[in-house]
Nucleic acid binder design. Structure first.
Lengths: 171, 171
DNA sequence: ATCTTATGTCAGCCTTGTTGACTTTCCAAG
DNA sequence: CTTGGAAAGTCAACAAGGCTGACATAAGAT
């Protein structure tokens, strides 16, 4: 099983050396190390404010989809409502997020960032984007296109749906 | 600050549209969703065995660098010795990892996977590689090269050092 | 002999995930 | 109009896996 990729590479006329276990292992380790860098800068800012990564995620997606319901956010974040609720409660208490009762369906709560919340979102995403932009610039447009392709192919189908729904609604 | 990329794109003659805030945000969200997929399959296996992601990381890097010391593992994983120790202790108790006192320096402990440990490592990395290989195959070799380039550029320099040290010592 | 390093361990704390049980609100189907 | 069920919130309890601080031990280095 572990040597499956090598067998494939042998059988094919194409150059499938990029599918060897070794190449794939490098990709796995790259993901591990890169994700640490990916979260490092926001993490530092969050710590100053007494928040964690969970708060960042909530803030990010509320910013991206203002007025989203709690249920929708749950589906995107993939956590339990109890986990999300704890985070949302503190954000609402601290005046970073506003929760408005739905018009059509008054059971639903629609979530929005307040000015303060938007300011923190800005600060966090500025930090994260700066590293990302440096990486993009260093790697170049072709590499970036490949980067995105591989990441999309790596997602669970349901997450891919959420991803596309978000990017389709880009301004 | 947030509009910096747009300004850059305007100023330059090159096509720097891939550096816009919008493109970078998509990359950020792709990282988030992809990382979930990246860990999903091993997580399922680990749960069956009563382990977590921390155990997977330890097992992975002990497999990759057999005989590594605790200190080296700490540097790679970027956690405290107390955190790592808790994980290592359970792996040693369960007979997945062996800790041998160093020859040259008897303060050091060199870590190795037992047969049982290697078997779990195999199972975990098979699962993770399968998804990765599917993503690689779907995206193609050029995309994969770009994927790796961007990830490397995203790492903290120290992590990049660890990453390269590992991949240089590939068999 | 003393300093430093590598490791291990105890205690305690925090964040963030989980389950389970229960309530409130309120839309919608009967 | 009643009732079933969905959406949301809350409480309690727990676990994993981070963290700090303090301390012990062994052993290399000075």
């Amino acid at each position: 099983m572990a040597q499956g990729a090598s067998a494939v590479a042998q059988k094919s006329g194409e150059n499938l050396l990029f599918l060897t276990d070794d190449q794939i292992r490098k990709g796995i380790e790259a993901m591990f190390f890169a994700y640490r860098g990916f979260t490092a800068d926001p993490d530092r800012i969050l710590e100053e404010q007494g928040y964690g990564r969970a708060h960042h995620r909530a803030i990010h997606f509320i910013h991206r989809a203002p007025g989203t319901t709690v249920n929708n956010l749950l589906a995107i974040l993939g956590v339990t409502k109890q986990s999300l609720n704890r985070v949302l409660r503190s954000l609402i208490e601290d005046g970073l997020v506003e929760s408005r009762v739905g018009n059509r369906d008054k059971r639903e709560r629609h979530l929005f960032l307040t000015e303060t919340g938007a300011a923190l979102e800005q600060k966090l995403s500025d930090a994260q984007r700066e590293r990302m932009r440096a990486a993009y610039r260093a790697a170049g447009p072709v590499a970036v296109a490949g980067f995105r392709q591989v990441l999309e192919a790596m997602m669970d189908p349901e997450m891919q749906r959420h991803f596309n729904r978000l990017t389709d609604s880009a301004r």
